[in-house]
Amino acid sequence: MTPPSSSRPGGAAAPDPSSLAPATPPPAKGLWLEDWLTVAIMALLALITFANVIVRYFTDGSFAWTEEISVFLMILLAMVAGSAAVARDLHIRIEYFADRGNARRRKAFARFGALMVALLFALICVLSIRVVYDDYRFEETSPGIGVPQWWYSVWLPIFSALITLRALGLFARQGKASFEAPADDTGEGTVTTKELA
């Protein structure tokens, strides 16, 4: 049963508040990669932590390598989750600026944000390649278990490049998405369903 629609003087129906939010861009393709990597990393973290707890409970020792591996996996998880959040347009934003103004302005702010994320992670990718090269050239080893440090650092440019591509994809999709006009102070507003070129 549909609830009765509230009417205004003059017979104009009140707009649905949910229809005044900015439209989300079309979904990104291939998000199964980030989703499955997140599941795998979380499972590894849980198994490593559980094994270490069991060993500590039944013996006087612990696995020395667990802390180093766990820290690496948590950093990797943050990068993977960051990529998924960029692709799904779920990163935090200052809503006071992002959700105000007309549809064209809101779209411009959204695209500007995606472009800045792409530029930031492209820069991180380029700079971290030098870090990996230095780790390899100087044969740096990890402080905990003594494996080559580049085994850990090589993932930073890889996932920075992935986030850059996801942000560029979001930028392109936002160009095709429609953004509805917000309500003004009286609660009235027009909903734009047409795509903005």
Rank of each mutant, 00 (worst) to 15 (best):
W65N: 04
A87N: 09
I129E: 04
N52T: 04
Y57V: 08
A46C: 12
S142T: 12
E195A: 09
A21G: 12
S19P: 02
A177T: 05
E67Q: 14
S70G: 12
W36Q: 06
M116F: 02
R111M: 15
V55W: 07
D135N: 15
V147L: 08
Y96M: 07
S160D: 01
R111G: 08
A197C: 00
G144C: 07
M79Q: 14
A183V: 04
A103W: 01
S6D: 09
G10D: 14
Y152V: 09
L33Y: 02
A177R: 03
T164Y: 07
F63S: 06
G10N: 13
I145W: 05
A161H: 01
K176E: 03
S5D: 09
D134V: 13
A108G: 02
A28F: 01
P157F: 15
P143D: 03
A197W: 04
A81I: 13
F58H: 12
W32T: 09
M1K: 12
A13Q: 10
A110E: 11
P25C: 05
L76S: 07
S178W: 03
L37G: 14
P9V: 10
A85I: 07
R8N: 11
P143E: 11
Q174C: 00
S70M: 07
E180P: 13
C125W: 06
V191T: 13
V80L: 12
E34R: 04
I75S: 12
W36R: 10
L120T: 15
T59V: 05
L162C: 08
S153L: 05
I145N: 13
G144I: 09
A118W: 06
A12G: 04
H91R: 15
L196P: 00
V154F: 06
D184V: 04
I94T: 11
D99I: 09
D89A: 10
I41A: 04
G11I: 10
A81D: 08
T38M: 15
T24C: 03
P182S: 14
D184Q: 03
R8P: 01
M79E: 14
F138K: 05
V147F: 03
W65K: 02
R105C: 00
M42L: 14
V39M: 12
L165A: 13
E140N: 11
